[in-house]
Design a protein around this nucleic acid. Structure first.
Length: 137
RNA sequence: GCGGAAGGUCGGAUGACCGCGGGCUUAUGGGUGACCAUAGGCGCGAGGAAAGUCCGGGCUCCAUGAAGAAAGGGUGCCGGGUAACGCCCGGCGGGGGUAACCCCAGGGAAAGCGCCACAGAGAAGAGACAGCCCAAGCAAAUCGCUUGCGAUGUGCGAAGGUGAUGGUGAAACGGUGGGGUAAGAGCCCACCGCGGGACUGGUAACAGAACCGGCACGGCAAGCCCCACCCGGAGCAAUGCCGAAUAGGGGCCUCGCGCGGAAAGGUCUGCGACCGCCUUCGGGCAACAGCAGAGACCUCCGCAGGGACACUUCAGCCCAGAGGCCCGGGUUGGCAGCUAGAUCCCGUCGGCAACGGCGGGGGUAGAGGAAUGGUCAUCAGAGGGGUUUCGGCCCCCGAACAGAACCCGGCUUAUUGACCUUCCGCGCAU
RNA sequence: GGCCCGUUCGUCUAUCGGUUAGGACACCAGGUUUUCAACCUGGGAAGAGGGGUUCGACUCCCCUACGGGCUG
């Protein structure tokens, strides 16, 4: 497995303007209107979760990510665990495949998000991002 | 050894890499600065229930304070513990278990009201009904004879007696046995039950009990209620501060601006020493102190009324506004509250215990859409499955319930198992 | 987070501690009709779960589960 610090250092060396992986993931969607806007745009289901995405038509080039786990997932422990796993795969995949100026929302699925193998979740997100970017508006 | 009972402890360990939330800190850059950004370093980071929100508090705000009463709600054997509790401890009473032990909202039903379906004669203060007994009387039968009277038993039987008997029912106005009687009945007796109870023990609940009473007083108060005690309401999304933005609002409702007095002060009117200014030297102007007066206003006092106080009273405050309700507009920022507290551990003393006193020691989650995740390694692991030469070895599976949101004390509920302590019953050995 | 309320046939709802738990719509069967609808007749179907009080609980009390509302 490639050491992540090598990858990060290489990126910052090439393009210092681009935000690092950490700051990228810190932009989190919070309010209900933001979530509703993203949900009304494109969506792509996978084995472990549902991905929603939308290109904000503004000058801001940041990437924003939101996480959703409804009461269907289970009790508070299960909901938190699902969000953590989604956050973990987003941290892994998003710096490589996310497009500037887009909002993404990851919606947990009952059972699957917690039970599915971690490497499968990574592959799910990679393929889902490719699909969702391929779609024509 | 088997089967039980009670109480307690733990809630996997170590490590690697990549990440998360606070805190402290270093460097660089920016900024006058508070500070911000980036990169590092150090250290900390969920529970026994963090849960349910069922009780009790702290804290904050609301109402000016005190008292009282009503309403409403809660608690309910006794004593103790506690900040407090509906919690805990120790007793008492009742029930269950061979026992260890467990369970119980466990005050009052002679203060009153209400209810007790169906069944049953009857369901609450009681007598009706059926039945039983029976004087008079009636009927037929037998016997005697003086032939229309007497006797005997039988049947019916108004009035009267009786409360034993009565398919029932959750519950039936004491039970069993004997005596007694026309039939019966605590009518009488024995035992049991019940009620009262001097006295004794105990702080008390309560226990024991001489003696008395022939027996009345059914159940339900988690039905209303009575008694005793407790309780103001809302909740950290409370609340305070800073900033931004909008507005500088609208509507509805309730009650009000009264009377009398005082004159210390303000005020006003008159007089006005000294000083000041002006002067045509006559005086004039202004005004402090002082004196006298006035009572419009301020002020003060009294009375009446009103006001918000959930109600009433009193006190206080206010009196020209005071108050209540609703609608509309803006913001979705920051800081505080925010974690050391009725705290935990150890020792010792008091206490049966809950707990308390004293001494010593320990401590770092504090987020704000919300932090613990991912990939692994080693070890531990009650036990289960497979294999077996029954010593074992090897392989596989193998933690549950669950995440702080102001903080504590309890209760309740969920939960993988393991371990420890004490106790009871049975069996075996000595 | 905090504060409240509720749970009865498939659905919406009644029900002074004593019932076989009532009604409407829906469902099923039969009748009517050439057939369908409508109509008529009949039928099935419920007290969230657990404990307690009581002779007896949908009803009263406690606990749990689930659902809903309000709140800056």
């Amino acid at each position: 497995m490639t050491p992540p610090e090598d990858m990060g250092q290489g990126k910052t060396a090439d393009a210092p303007v681009q935000p690092s992986a950490v700051s990228l993931c810190l932009n989190v969607l919070k309010t209900r209107p933001e979530f509703l806007r993203v949900a009304s745009a494109r969506r792509q289901g996978t084995g472990g979760f549902l991905l929603q995405a939308r290109h904000r038509n503004d000058a801001d080039s940041r990437v924003q990510i939101g996480f959703t786990a409804s009461k269907k997932i289970g009790n508070a422990v299960a909901r938190n665990r699902a969000k953590r796993r989604l956050r973990a795969i987003a941290r892994d995949v998003m710096p490589r495949l996310a497009k500037a100026g887009w909002d993404y929302v990851l919606v947990a699925r009952p059972g699957a998000t917690i039970a599915r193998d971690y490497s499968d979740l990574i592959r799910d997100l990679e393929s889902a991002l490719r699909q969702i970017h391929k779609e024509k508006p």
